[in-house]
Computed example of a mutant assay.
Amino acid sequence: MSSSPSRGRKRLLAIVGGLALGLIVAEAGLQVTDTRPERFRPPRWSVFDGNSFQRSDMWADGLIKQPSPFAGVDMGQYTPGARFRIEYASNPRGYFDDRNGVEMTVNKLGLRGPEVTREKPAGTLRLLGLGDSFTFGVGVGEEHTFLRRLEGRLGGQRPIEVLNAGTQGYNTRDQQVTLENRWLTLAPDIVLVIFYLNDIYRDESAVAFWNNGEGDGVYLQPTGLARHSHLLDWFQYSWRVRNLRRRMISHYSQAYFTNPRAFFDNASSSSRQMDWPASRAALARIVELSETHGFRVGLAIFPELMSLEDYPFTAIHTFVNETCGDLGLPVHDLLPDFRGLTDQQLWVHPTDHHPNEIAHDIVARSLEEFLRTQLVPDMFSPDGQTSP
C-alpha cells in the first residue's frame, strides 16, 4: 500500500519537472533568438530653424504653431512657412525616408501645400478642406494627402485649387471660427468639413490613448523579474494588453457611444460637458455662412481606424448623419469605404494611428464621387471633367 503514494509523488515530480524543463527550453529559445513583444519609442518631432532640423514638440516655440488670435482656439495655428518632420522607430511599409520620417511644410498663408495667392485666380474653382490632423495628413507626404489627391482627380478643363486648412488638434468649433475669421477671404466655392469622431466627445475620454498605439501596448516596458526573463516578459505583456483591451471595451460601452441621441437629448451635466453641443452649433453656423457667402458646403465623417471588423462607433455615425440632415448639410460617411480592411493596414505606424497613404487614397476616391454625384454635380460633367 505504501507504494501508491510513492508512485503519486513520482508522477507529480515528473509533471513538475517536465513543466520546468519546458519553461527552461522556452526561455532559452526566446533568449537565443532575442524574441520579445514588439515595442517602439514614441514618434519624434523636429523643426527646421533656418539652418537644420532640431528636436522639438508640436509647437516648437512658435516655429511650427503659434497662438491663434481668435478667442477659444486653444490649439493655435500653423506658422506661415513652417517646415517640420515626424520620425518613427521603424519603416514597416518602406514608405518613409532614410530617417524613417516625413517632412511637412506650411505655405505663406498658413495652409499645408504649395504656395497659392490669396486672391482666387479668374476661372478657378477653389475648394477649402477643414479638419484636424487627419485632414492635414500627419505622417504622410503632401502629394499623398487626400486633399491633394482629390485636386488631381478633379482636375480637368477648369483649373481647380484644393486648399488644406487641416490643423492638428482642431475641433469643429475651431474650424468654424477660423473659416469665418480667416479663410473666407480666400473666396472658396466649396467647403468640405472633415468630421472626426472626437468632436462628439471630449479628448479626455481616452480615444487619444488608443490612437497613439498606447492602448495596443506598444510602449509597455517590462517590470520586476520580467526585465530579466524573456518568457516572463511575454506573460506580463500579454496580461497587461488584455487588461487594456478590457478597459477599451468598458469605455466604449458608455451611453454616448451606444446611444448618442438619447445621451445628448437628456441634457444632463455629463452631456453638456461633451464637445457635441459646441460642434453642432458650429456646423449650423457654417451652413449659415455658406448661404451668406455663396459657397457649397458638405461634411465627410472620418471613422476611427480601429476595430473596423467590429466597429464600436456606428451609432455615432448615424447620429451625426441624422443631425446633418436636420441642418440641411450634405453628408458623406467614409466608413463603408474601409469595410473589409484591417485597421493596421491603414495606420501611419503602430505608434501613430493617423491614416497612411493607403487610407488617404481611399478617402480621395470616395470624396471625388461625393462631389461629382451629390454635393456639386452641376460643377462637373458626367465624363469626369470639370464643367466650364
Score class of each variant (00 low, 15 high):
Glu309Gly: 00
Glu322Lys: 13
Asn107Arg: 05
Leu225Asp: 01
Pro42Gln: 09
Ala282Asn: 07
Leu327Pro: 02
His317Gln: 15
Arg99Leu: 07
Ala278Pro: 09
Asn356Tyr: 06
Val102Met: 03
Trp276Cys: 01
Gln236Asn: 02
Asp378Trp: 13
Asn51Ile: 12
Trp347Phe: 08
Arg55Leu: 11
Gly123Cys: 11
Pro159His: 08
Thr33Trp: 05
Leu232Arg: 04
Tyr311Pro: 12
Ser290Asn: 13
Gln385Gly: 01
Asp174Arg: 03
Ser381Lys: 03
Asp275His: 14
Arg240Ile: 04
Ser133Trp: 01
Gly139Thr: 00
Arg296Phe: 00
Asn181Gln: 15
Ala71Glu: 08
Val106Leu: 04
Leu289Phe: 00
Ser133Met: 05
Ala20Pro: 01
Pro80Arg: 04
Arg365Thr: 04
Val193Met: 10
Glu357Asp: 08
Asp352Val: 14
Ala359Glu: 00
Ser270Tyr: 13
Ser90Tyr: 09
Asn91Val: 08
Glu368Tyr: 04
Gly94Tyr: 12
Asn100Asp: 07
Ser68Gly: 02
Ala278Gly: 11
Gly217Phe: 05
Asp378Ile: 08
Pro159Ser: 06
Arg280Leu: 06
Arg55Gly: 03
Ser250Thr: 07
Arg112His: 01
Leu341Asp: 03
Val73Phe: 03
Ala281Met: 09
Ile190Pro: 11
Gln77Arg: 05
Glu291Asn: 08
